[in-house]
Design a binder for these strands. Structure first.
Length: 198
DNA sequence: TGCCCGATTAACT
DNA sequence: GTTAATCGGGCAA
């Protein structure tokens, strides 16, 4: 049985935390699955919501690491982030896709589809499947309704350019599990850098 | 106050 | 491949 992640896990650079999250188990109110795709956002990164300084929306990013940053995307969808980077460097990791494993019936009902591959393959989709909304904004990641467990075995992690951004679009700060069928999009075969993580 | 646009998705052609 | 849906944040005026 793998260990439940404590807040200290997130008290590191987003570039360390993001690849370490691949293969971890994320549950929200007992529903969720295995993390297969995330993206890192650093404060010095023009694509990060924290780039222009604190506002009402991104305030939690400027607080201590280990908390949830939830925001509305395109006025329609919710997106879930894990706040990282203590010491004034406001960063977060965007949760982009999970392999659904726990609470499949609940996720199918919330999503309105039985296609397991489309349940949680995308930041908006996984929030809908896991029931994440603005009510989880600012909540600690090591307490209910969240439960996150470290991966139990070695995982092949690949990195590539992030999705859906126009600023700093060249930075390879998207991380995923190599070959997963549950990615929101495949990684570019040529550009992707691969490495093995334990 | 007004305007533009976005860390998206699903339903089109 | 293209586009509508839908609305708050951020910036100019």
């Amino acid at each position: 049985m793998s260990a439940r992640l404590r807040r200290g896990f997130f008290d590191r650079s987003v570039h360390e935390v993001a690849p370490d999250l691949i293969g971890a188990l994320l549950l929200v109110n007992g529903v969720g699955g295995r993390l297969v795709e995330v993206e890192a956002y650093h404060q010095t990164d023009a694509a990060a919501h924290s780039f222009r300084g604190p506002t009402e929306r991104n305030a939690v990013m400027f607080g201590p690491p280990g908390f949830a940053y939830v925001y509305r995307s395109y006025g329609i969808h919710w997106c879930l982030n894990f706040v990282c980077e203590r010491k004034g460097s406001a960063g977060a990791v965007l949760i982009r896709a999970i392999e659904p494993t726990v609470g499949l019936a609940t996720m199918r009902r919330r999503r309105g589809t039985s296609d397991q591959r489309l349940l949680c393959s995308g930041p908006g989709r996984l929030c809908e499947a896991l029931g994440v909304t603005g009510t989880q904004y600012g909540l600690p990641l090591d307490a209910s309704p969240f439960a996150i467990f470290a991966r139990s075995g070695a995982v092949d992690v690949v990195a590539g350019p992030r999705i859906g951004i126009t600023k700093a679009a060249d930075l390879p700060w998207r991380y995923g599990e190599k070959g997963s069928r549950f990615l929101s999009k495949p990684f570019p075969a040529v550009a992707a850098a691969a490495y093995r993580s334990t």
